[in-house]
Design a protein around this nucleic acid. Structure first.
Length: 581
RNA sequence: CGCGGGGUAGAGCAGUGGCAGCUCGUCAGGCUCAUAACCUGAAGGUCGUUGGUUCGAAUCCAACCCCCGCAACCA
């Protein structure tokens, strides 16, 4: 069925920091939800561009590499590979997953830096910062420690005192020392560029007022709070060699700060994608068509970058298009249209996944790695669990008992049980042949309304509710089967029995189509069990060929014909015994 | 200390002035094609605390307690 109302959907997914493996927070935060959203839209026949990549620059990477005795490049390379492997195991599928280390990214970042500078949004300013003479480095805030001026605690960090919670500047600390060498750092003058966010406060505030109505409440309130407090100019360069050099004469020893650099990846990865499919200007379809909606899947902590700073950069940069000399001088790769860049449509950020009451993070090792979970559980269960229990509006505690309950009560007892009892019945009583029948009115209505409901929820980024709706159909299906009692009518009213089973098989097929974006691997198996051949699937085409060639709406219920022969049933989801814990 | 979110049954949550609800779990009974679902019934709450407004407060107001996140790379 050709999709006549094809929409363009751009999806930017938060760039994982390339300093180690993925942990459960990544899954709860963004990496599962984005994939379900993308798969749904591809299935619907929409044109999707989902990009992300490994955030490969920044001070922590340099320090971690030093600690491991390798170069930052080696650390970043191995992390990038590990991330890609994990994504593949979980069937997380991007149009482009790249890294901030590419030449293309560097070009785009420097282009944006220079344009913002020419437009007067970046200006240089001198300041004094702590410098460690032993290791010959300027120190990031958290690498300076000392006594808290507020409560007297020793070992307070340069950004915050862990004892009294006071927010500090490194220069507030009494008796500061460098965590890199334990020596006393000196204050040394340095010069940096600053992004003049103050100048952008009004336009960003206005944009947010009109745009944020459909955002999650907490994302909206949080972002508006930032604007209300007032935006201050922020440093955008660093005294470091590893990273993207500041493209200005005399600044060769400095790099562009990662917080302004990494978000540019959304644009540079789109440009890289366009190149890789051999259509250099294709990215403009997604970035310059005002009808293309931009969604950013991120985790809580990154909200201000995506609702304030990145939009501010885009808004400022778009002034290039009404300036003849800048337009001539600073074209992005493949750029042909003199039209401004799209701002975020929605930023469906999730809150934190907590483990034993604390947030998971790479830095303190409380986060369980995704790999350790993959050793014990199926990728589809992991996908389903993290979208079913996503911390969309509240922080959420992770525990393995809930994980097993989700498998046993929802995937096994609800969905799996219904599929199995239906297929087994066709197998044992009808020799694998779908019996004659017609769709009952209530079955038809249930299926149609659930399709609408689930679609509406996914499009509104309410994934927990989407899973609830699907489980509701599973519940309806089980009840239908039960109420109709085909095991009784088989003995005394064969045509009624046939009709019941015909309807049950249609419900199985409806669940199959609805669950495709969520648990693709199991659904692939179910498609085989139902002996459905030659069904077009945009996500499978993208997996296999790297691109989608058709625009077909397959988010529709298609009944299976009577007399269709299915294969022998097989258990789709295995029950997990609690004692295995 | 600042900003934001939260505290309702064992767990997860809904509920913005009118009998405290939903999903899952627990217990008992019925039914049984199925990895067991479905039906009926039951247990389980000081709605964080205290005070106030009101005929009436989970809901509005005030003060306080507790948990989580953020402040520039920790999703």
């Amino acid at each position: 069925m050709e999709n006549l109302n094809q929409e363009k959907i751009f999806i930017g997914v938060s760039w994982p920091y390339a300093s180690g493996k993925l942990h459960l927070g990544h899954l709860a935060g963004q990496n599962i939800a984005c994939d379900i959203f993308a798969r749904y839209h591809r299935q619907k026949g929409n044109s999707v561009l989902m990009v992300s990549g490994s955030d490969s620059h920044g001070t922590p990477i340099v320090f971690k590499a030093e600690e491991l005795g390798i170069t930052p490049e080696q650390l970043v390379d191995s992390s990038h590979k590990e991330i890609l492997e994990t994504f593949e195991k979980l069937s997380l599928l991007y149009e482009k997953y790249t890294s901030t280390t590419t030449q293309n990214h560097k070009e785009v970042v420097q282009n944006i830096f220079l344009v913002l500078k020419e437009l007067g949004y970046l200006y240089p300013q001198k300041s004094k910062q702590y410098y460690d003479e032993k290791v010959k480095k300027f120190l990031p805030d958290r690498y300076v420690r000392g006594t808290c001026p507020e409560c007297g605690a020793l070992d307070a960090r340069g950004d915050e005192c862990p004892v009294c919670g006071k927010f500090l500047k490194p220069t507030d600390l009494i008796d500061p020392y460098s965590t890199l060498s334990d020596s006393k750092p000196i204050l040394k003058e340095t010069e940096h560029y600053y992004l003049d966010l103050k100048k952008l406060e009004k336009p960003i505030g206005d944009w947010m007022d009109t745009q944020s109505k459909h955002w999650r409440k907490w994302v909206r309130e949080f972002s508006k709070g930032w604007i209300k407090e007032g935006l201050e100019p922020r440093e955008v360069t660093r005294d470091m060699k590893y990273g993207i050099p500041v493209p200005i004469k005399g600044w060769e020893e400095k790099v562009i700060y990662v917080w302004i650099e990494a978000v540019v990846g959304y644009l540079s990865a789109s440009i890289e994608w366009a190149k890789s499919i051999g259509q250099e200007s294709k990215w403009e379809d997604f970035w310059k068509d005002p009808k293309c909606k931009h969604y950013y899947f991120i985790a809580g902590g990154n909200v201000p970058f995506h609702t304030i700073i990145w939009p501010a950069q885009l808004l400022a940069y778009s002034e290039k298009y009404s300036n003849d000399s800048l337009w001539d001088k600073y074209k992005l790769p493949g750029e042909s249209k003199r039209e401004s860049l799209n701002l975020p449509w929605d930023v469906p950020a999730n809150k934190m996944l907590l483990y034993k009451g604390k947030k998971m993070s790479k830095s303190d090792n409380t986060g369980m790695s995704v790999d350790s979970l993959l050793e014990k559980y199926s990728p589809d269960l992991i996908r389903f669990f993290f979208v079913r229990n996503a911390p969309e509006n509240h922080d959420r505690e992770f525990n393995e008992k809930d994980f097993i309950d989700c498998n046993n009560n929802e995937l096994v007892a609800n969905i799996g049980n219904f599929i199995n009892r239906s297929l087994s019945f066709v197998n044992s009583k009808f020799n694998n042949k779908v019996p004659q029948g017609q769709l009952d009115l209530d079955v038809k209505e249930s299926i149609e309304s659930i399709f609408k409901e689930v679609g509406k929820y996914i499009e509104g980024c309410e994934f927990v509710k989407a899973t609830e709706a699907i489980l509701k159909l599973g519940n309806f299906a089980n009840k239908y089967f039960n109420d109709k009692a085909p095991w009784i009518s088989f003995k005394d009213n064969l045509s009624e029995c046939e009709n019941t089973i015909y309807n049950s098989i249609q419900l199985v097929n409806a669940l199959r189509i609805l669950l495709k974006p969520f648990i693709p691997q199991s659904i692939f198996t179910l498609t085989t069990l139902l002996n459905i051949e030659n069904e077009y699937d945009a996500n499978i085409e993208l997996t296999e060929t790297g691109k989608v060639s058709k625009s077909e709406n397959n988010w529709v219920f298609v009944p299976l014909n009577p007399s269709h022969i299915i294969n022998d049933p097989k258990i789709l989801f295995a029950k997990i015994e609690e004692k295995e814990l």
